[in-house]
């Protein structure tokens, strides 16, 4: 700005001096610095360092780490049975998280989108479990599954299905599924909210026009509502997948990975290996695997979030 140097324009110079001080290149950095510094130290640096640690054999305390290259990953994939159980459980969990909360959430959103007496109360009811901590959700559902006193078995016995009653959380073959049900109860609220918001953006005229053309409700859902919710669905699926891979608290509260490690997820098995068995190398390697899986779903999501900028 050459005009700033002309002394003739005294008042203006003063003002632009201030402006130029303000638009100093470092000013945005100043606004960003506190967040960036603490975020980089607490989240980013540990992430990178974890990836580095996964290349070593280390117990977490001794001063020497032994560099082993990719051996930890080799051990996990070829010698660690629980790792495969955890991987399989994560896959089951992921599929359930992509199907159940999303479809239930969409169904509820469509039902509750209309403004009618009490619609807000019903929305709150179905959203409510989402504000509870997963530890609390886990504890509450543990009572429901209690073999003798739990509601589930009581109901089964009362309706003559005694044969189905079992010790839900101690049966190695099925223990994961009751936990997934509990997690679903907690997870439905978010897709419902996002779908409710998405439904607001669909112009009423579309439905009106379709009705005039004689489209029935199902046709209108298939050809109008669902296609118009495409963006919302992408966001919902991405968030559900990312959250599914983060699942941890609820396992810890309900089964602690048992019985016989049959309900371990990568997240809980990482904790066990690292903090109970002092296998820091293996633990961090699991963390890296988990993070890589997350990236599959996260990269499209981040692309989407940073669009139009």
């Amino acid at each position: 700005m050459a005009s700033e140097n002309t002394a003739v324009l005294a008042p203006r110079t003063l003002k632009s001096a201030k402006t130029s001080y303000d638009s100093l290149r470092f000013l945005p950095w100043l606004f960003l610095a506190p967040s960036l510094v603490i975020y980089s130290i607490v989240v980013v640096y540990p992430m990178v360092y974890s990836a580095y640690l996964s290349l070593f054999r280390w117990d977490g305390v001794s001063p020497t780490k032994v560099y082993v290259g990719l051996d930890n990953y080799g051990i996990l994939f070829t010698q660690n049975d629980v790792f495969w159980i955890a991987l399989r459980n994560n896959a089951i969990w992921l599929v359930a998280a992509l199907l159940l909360p999303t479809s239930i959430g969409l169904g509820l959103a469509i039902l509750l989108n209309a403004r009618f007496r009490g619609s807000h109360i019903f929305r709150s009811v179905f959203y409510f479990p989402s504000v509870l901590s997963l530890a609390v959700v886990g504890l509450i559902w543990t009572w429901i599954y209690h073999p003798d006193l739990g509601l589930l078995n009581q109901v089964l016995r009362a309706v003559g299905l005694k044969a189905l009653a079992r010790n839900w959380l101690s049966d190695p073959n099925i223990a994961l599924y009751p936990v997934i049900i509990a997690a679903t109860w907690n997870a439905v609220g978010l897709p419902m909210l996002l779908y409710l918001a998405g439904l607001q953006t669909i112009p009423e005229e579309l439905h009106e026009a379709a009705k005039v053309e004689g489209a029935n409700p199902i046709q209108r859902f298939v050809y109008i509502t669902f296609p118009m919710l495409r963006e919302t669905t992408l966001v919902v699926l991405a968030i559900m997948a990312i959250n599914a891979l983060k699942a941890y608290d609820i396992i810890y509260a309900m089964t602690n990975g048992g019985p016989a490690n049959k309900t371990q997820l990568l997240s809980t098995w990482m904790y066990f290996l690292t903090y109970n068995y002092n296998q820091v190398g293996l633990g961090t390697a699991i963390a890296v695997v988990l993070f890589s899986l997350t990236l599959i779903f996260a990269i499209p999501y981040i692309r989407f979030m940073t669009r139009k900028t």
């Binding site: 980013v44 540990p46 992430m47 974890s50 633990g283 963390a287 988990l290 997350t294 940073t306 900028t309």
Partner: peptide, 26 residues
């Protein structure tokens, strides 16, 4: 702005497990 925002968004997807060991040391 865009690059920094993307950098910050990474934090949304990081599983906690990926940070635990170094954080313990720190």
């Amino acid at each position: 702005a865009d690059r920094i925002f993307t950098y910050i968004l990474i934090g949304l997807i990081v599983p906690m497990q990926m940070t635990l060991v170094p954080l313990t040391l720190l």
